[in-house]
């Protein structure tokens, strides 16, 4: 065999710290950073994604305001605002998750999956990245709060952002779950639309979940997104003067077999759904993809 001149500096660093929690954390952070880099490079997408919630808020909201009876205390657009905020993260978050289909098509998924890190690290990093990008995007919608009579109270803003992040994380995880099974780029968009639209309509984002027929009420309670949208509306109404009657009509509490879920429990349910979806995504994602 031929002898080679070694570079001593390479041999000295053969011992790496791979596999420990510190390494997993680095991997999560790096996958997150990649989402941030790509988000920054694509401002056109940000604006395209924002068009839809703005249409709901100002075009649909204004158009329907004249026929929807909100009891006179609250403008229909004020009612819509928390729902539209949630909608503003839905699509971009789900697309961030489903972008794994593109990563697979263009080969980068393999670069991630052959690395000596767990699937958990890769997928959690992806979900945190998608959720951060989607939440950042929704800031533009949040900035319009004053135009529909929602006060710019710092605590309210922070609460809304936190809830938006939960919604965005959940939706990114759903996107990841879908991408584990979708092989074709052409199928990615329609499939995610098909998943998101029912979730959006059944969450109470666009109409109050009061006096619904039983079948519809059950579907709304099975919808993970309901448990984020309802708390968002509740925190907004906390900062407005709303009578008990209007509250009953516009923001009825979620009940399970007659038990009214406190907001804290609703948020826990949302986090539970998000974790379950995440775990399912990690479980079915194929390492040899």
């Amino acid at each position: 065999m031929t002898t080679t001149t070694r570079d001593p500096s390479t041999a000295a660093h053969r011992h790496r710290t791979v596999g420990g929690p510190a390494h997993e954390l680095r991997a999560i952070s790096m996958v997150w950073q990649r989402e941030m880099i790509r988000f920054r490079h694509d401002p056109a997408r940000v604006f395209a994604m924002l068009l839809q919630p703005l249409l709901f808020l100002f075009v649909m909201g204004t158009g329907l305001a004249s026929i929807v009876d909100t009891g006179g205390e609250i403008d229909f657009r004020t009612f819509l605002f928390p729902g539209v905020l949630a909608i503003s993260v839905l699509f971009s978050a789900a697309f961030a998750g489903i972008s794994l289909v593109w990563d697979r098509e263009f080969g980068f998924l393999r670069e991630m999956l052959v690395a000596p890190v767990s699937k958990f690290a890769i997928i959690v990093g992806k979900c945190l990245g998608g959720a951060t990008a989607a939440t950042a995007q929704s800031l533009v919608v949040l900035a319009l709060a004053g135009m529909v009579g929602v006060p710019y109270h710092p605590v309210l803003m922070l609460k809304l952002l936190a809830l938006l992040f939960v919604a965005a994380f959940m939706l990114t995880a759903i996107g990841v779950l879908l991408s584990a099974r979708i092989r074709q780029i052409q199928a990615a968009m329609p499939t995610s639309q098909l998943t998101i639209l029912p979730m959006m309509f059944l969450s109470g984002a666009l109409f109050p979940l009061a006096n619904l027929p039983d079948w519809l009420a059950i579907l709304t309670k099975l919808n993970p997104l309901t448990y984020v949208v309802q708390p968002m509306r509740a925190v907004v109404f906390d900062y407005l003067n709303v009578s008990a009657g209007a509250l009953e009509a516009l923001d009825p509490a979620i009940t399970w077999f007659g038990w009214q879920l406190p907001i804290g429990v609703q948020i826990l349910v949302a986090l539970g759904f998000a974790s379950a979806i995440l775990a399912a995504g990690i479980a079915i994602f194929d390492r040899s993809d």
Binding site: R16, T17, V18, H23, R26, A27, S29, M30, R34, I37, R38, H41, D103, F106, G107, F108, R110, E111, M112, A115, P116, V117
Partner: peptide, 20 residues
Amino acid sequence: TLDTYLTAEQNLRFHGEMYG
């Protein structure tokens, strides 16, 4: 298996972090 929307350096750094 490169991310073509990243720079060469960013691709390398991604790899370095993933491999510890």
